[in-house]
Design a protein around this nucleic acid. Sequence first.
DNA 1: GAGCACTGC
Length: 806
Amino acid sequence: MSDNPYLAHLAPSQRGASSSISSSDKEPLYGFLPRKVKGSQVRDAMNHKLNPFTKQPHSAQYRKILEARRSLPVYSQMDEFLEIFSKNQIIVMVGETGSGKTTQIPQFVAFSDLPHTKGKLVACTQPRRVAAMSVAQRVADEMDVQLGKQVGYSIRFEDMTESGTTFLKYMTDGMLLREAMNDTELSRYSTIILDEAHERTLATDILMGLLKGLAKRRKDLKLIVMSATLDALKFQSYFSLHNSGEEPSPAPLFKVPGRTHPVEVFYTQDPEPDYVEAAIRTVLMIHRAEDPGDILLFLTGEEEIEDACRKIKAEADDLINSDPSSVGPLMCVPLYSSLPPQQQQRIFDAPPKQSQEGYPPGRKVVVSTNIAETSLTIDGIVYVVDPGFSKQKVYNPRIRVESLLVSPISKASAQQRAGRAGRTRPGKCFRFHFRARRTDAPEILRSNLANAVLELAKLGVKDLVRFDYLDAPAPETLMRALELLNFLAALDDEGELTALGGIMAEFPLDPQLAKMLIVSPEFKVSNEILTITAMLSIPNVWLRPPSQRAAADQAKALMTVPEGDHLTLLNVFNNYYQNKSDRNWAWNNFLSARALAQAENVRAQLLRTMERFEVECISLEDERKRNMGKNMPSAYVRVLHANCSSGGEKGSYLTVKDNQVVALHPSCGLDAQPEWVLFNEFVLTKRPYIRTVTEVRPEWLLEYAPLYYDLNAFPDGETKRALLKLTSKRRAITGNGKDANEKKRSSKELKGGGKGGKGKLTKGKLKGGSKDKSTGWSKDEVKKKVPAWKDGKATLSDYFVSGGFI
DNA sequence: GAGCACTGC
């Protein structure tokens, strides 16, 4: 039974009984029986003069850190955890903020599982890179080892592990999924811990389905799913045990209390007609009336946040000017992801000092998107103002469009937001009356699944529809994904993964872009396409500071290639690359240096993948570069939804198969309005737009995407008529009845057309107009319903009632 | 003449 080399010499009676043996004389792990370890043994080993894993004496800071660990709630339940871990293959664990689960549980597992004695690893997944990195660093310190040795992390672009040495690895969920594509048994791992499972990222959801099946095949694999309280039951029944002849029993639950300060929650009694207005009012009333402590206000997006910051500042200045002795100075800081890192850092600045001895102290207000809900933690927050909305992605499979809609948040989100007030001392949370949804729809129900379906196929899942999803996607969403992958020739007509599909899955790209890149050597433009796919994988590179809009637009015009936005992106990257020695080049040209550095990183990673699969990196000869405008899209049309013809109102296009009316996005750099264009992205904001657009010749569509543009199976409409006209003209010219493309159509490499622009349209209420998002009231109605508060008579208690503590 | 909730490979 024992495969632990440390135990081989022991008599059975000695095994698992370290407490009876003087711990200081023996090796720290003396008597440890894998997966039968007790809390007393682990505590002895932690107290041993030697590090159990390096056999070196402990450093001075080790004892100090250990002392702090002992006060974590999860630490006092070590015995209970080890027992439940010994007895079960799958455990659901619940631990609220501050319980210490993310740092301690993987260490407990390492002591019990002893992965290093059998050449295995314990993995702990995280939804975000920064979390994987910082937790790994913390745990390496706690275990008194060097990061990257016994304890490491693995994220995109960085593998901080040492093969043969690392036995505890923190990693992003996406990274583990990628590993599973090449080893579906995940045989390197003895225990896998899925942390933050309640966040229900696409990768964690797929991993749960995969690991549930894998645990049945690999009885030696243990699985721990860590989540927030509200979701625990769902996970327990999903991972329930099915013993023959018995009712399925839910997976065992291990629960640890959190350790945060109490937060009192206050509610408004009536719905707020305009939540931004009400939020600003609430912030200022807190500032005027409440004890010192910083404020965190949650709003939905950049525009709303900048607007609120301006208004809060103006109102606060008013208050100070009218009576500097009654209120302190207020500093208002915006926070959202597209903000340059330097400005993001401002949320950590200290609040302003009191203006004069004896006057009230200053206060900091952070106005943030959801980024402050999970990704970023700000110390010193005592008050949270939560109107209860966030922007959420929705996917409409009928028209293949993803869009962002302002929607009410879930109970879990509201709780998480309130918790942000209790990190340093007891706090208060002011919520507006809102009907929180019981749960958030997981990402898998809100996304275009083309990528996920390709990954599942690569993972060897045969029946994608009947895969054991925790929440099964809509059949139509799966059909759209299968249809697209079939057009791209990643899946054959039977739904089996093709060789091409297998390679496509290896690229960290959308399937359309992966296909475009893989076929690009046929067009002798793969070097250029490589750059373009990298540029399409990163956030917007164009900066447009409000104070310098004209200069920014001018700089962009200089970089623009009139033939199309894709060539403009290529041009931007090449210029960036040539000017890399100049640190200020990006800023001087109103480009994001961060985004460009990211593009360079992505490009290098894609190039490595190309080399692995012998996709040649070919660049055009200099004299042919002038022809890029024609050559580049000819590779592109095979993979993107190149399906717009002009029609209807001026300036608008029709998508070729769904007949959606769309307009060129104002950021588009085309100097004319060509009849046919292909696009990268379909966005729905004030109206449907296509973004990143390049002119295309219709004959290229017929030639290089014959499957998609098979006119015999094409829906009737303007596009079909235009394409038919084109083919009859060409027949007349070539003089024979056969379409010149028919030969190519039989060619295997050219099989697979293109379609499926990213983007979406939804029925949801459009932004804009003068109606308030939450109530539908007009601005005039809002004015009437918002009472004056600045006269000093109104107080927080006129608006809010206490709803107890969380 | 508009925008970019947030992650991840």
